[in-house]
Simulated assay, not measured.
Amino acid sequence: MIFEAQPDDIDELYELWRLLLDMQQAYHVVFRYKPGSEQALKAELLNRLKDKSTRVFVYESDEVWAGMLVASLRPGSAGFKLSSKGYIGETVVRAEFRGKGIGKELFEAARKWLSDQGADHLELQVSVHNPGGIRFWESLGFTPSTQHMVLPLQQPGNSKKTK
């Protein structure tokens, strides 16, 4: 069953979000979180839950929160042909539930909501170090349009520039 998470669901949702964050730790420094940052991370997730242009879809199976997907409507410039972006954010399905169509169901719920809100296209980012994720999104029709690149200017948790 798919439902939209609410602010009262923060603890259960945070547990799912941490699965994704923990999986991504080895991919790139941009995904790493600071030790002892649970409150700050929960506050970030709570902001998303309260944002009127964002929905967090959750898949529940036998009272277990099996997966989640964050979807946001991000208006763009009216000067572009595609000017109303639906953005697919953090998406995760617990390992024991993968391969059962849950990710696709979460995506379809998000796609319907974003389309109903007026999105004329969908975008997302997936780590280049996550070939399973890339294959999943490609199977749903997504294709690359840009190469997202990052250059950290400081060591994480340090105010000095990196060498």
Rank of each mutant, 00 (worst) to 15 (best):
Pro35Trp: 13
Pro35Gln: 13
Pro35Arg: 12
Gly36Met: 07
Gln39Pro: 10
Gln39Cys: 12
Leu41Arg: 06
Leu41Gly: 05
Lys42Thr: 08
Ala43Met: 14
Leu46Gly: 04
Leu46Ile: 11
Leu46Thr: 08
Lys50Thr: 15
Asp51Gln: 09
Asp51Lys: 09
Ser53Leu: 13
Val58Trp: 00
Ser61Cys: 13
Ser61Lys: 10
Asp62Cys: 08
Trp65Cys: 05
Trp65Asp: 06
Ala66Leu: 04
Ala66Phe: 03
Ala66Cys: 07
Ala66Thr: 00
Gly67Leu: 00
Met68Ser: 03
Leu69Lys: 02
Ala71His: 01
Ala71Pro: 03
Ala71Ile: 02
Ser72Lys: 06
Leu73Arg: 05
Leu73Pro: 01
Pro75His: 11
Gly76Ala: 08
Gly76Tyr: 06
Ser77Glu: 14
Ala78Thr: 14
Ala78Ser: 15
Phe80His: 13
Lys81Gly: 13
Lys81Val: 15
Lys81Gln: 14
Lys85Trp: 09
Gly86Gln: 04
Tyr87Lys: 04
Tyr87Glu: 06
Arg94Val: 07
Ala95Asp: 15
Glu96Trp: 12
Glu96Gln: 13
Phe97His: 04
Arg98Val: 04
Gly99Lys: 04
Lys100His: 11
Gly101Lys: 12
Gly101Asp: 08
Gly101Cys: 09
Ile102Gln: 00
Ile102Arg: 01
Lys104His: 14
Lys104Cys: 11
Glu105Asn: 10
Phe107Asp: 00
Phe107Ser: 00
Ser115Leu: 09
Asp116Phe: 12
Asp116Glu: 15
Asp116Pro: 05
Gln117Gly: 07
Gln117Thr: 08
Gln117Lys: 15
Gln117Val: 06
Gly118Trp: 12
Asp120His: 06
Leu122Asn: 02
Glu123Asp: 14
Val128Arg: 08
Pro131Asp: 07
Pro131Thr: 06
Gly132Pro: 02
Gly133Gln: 01
Gly133Ile: 00
Gly133Ser: 03
Arg135Glu: 08
Arg135Ser: 05
Phe136Thr: 01
Trp137Gln: 01
Trp137Arg: 00
Glu138His: 15
Ser139Asp: 08
Leu140Asn: 03
Thr143Ile: 13
Thr143Val: 15
